[in-house]
Amino acid sequence: MYKYKASKDTGSKSWILQRITGLALVVLMIGHYILMHFQPESGHTYAAVLARMQFSWYRIIDLTFITLGMYHGLNGIWNIFRDYKLKQWAKISILSALIILGLAFTAWGYSVIFSIPYINSISGN
């Protein structure tokens, strides 16, 4: 009997997510570039970042950006590896390395964003 031992997952979910996240990243990237390079100061001084981060919406957008970028990027890398016939142990170690690396750097990015303080403007600063 021909019985596939591979997973039943055809990869269609990963395929569609890759397209959706990709399109979202294009939109986010346009905003990112306008913000960072149209006025170079806005991306390169602490005061500007601090002022921007007073709006929680900017934080939410940045967190989304990191998450989507990390998912899209590492899923893309994994898709490259999937093009080659890999031994099971190689698959497992590459995938876990990518997941650990992705989670670690996402957490690092999150912690950087969360470390930026909210300045309480009511207290008279």
């Binding site: 970028g69 893309g76 890398i77 690396l101």
Partner: peptide, 10 residues
């Protein structure tokens, strides 16, 4: 370009 961009993201 994808590999380069992931490297840059890190």
């Amino acid at each position: 370009s994808g590999i380069a961009l992931v490297a840059y993201l890190f």
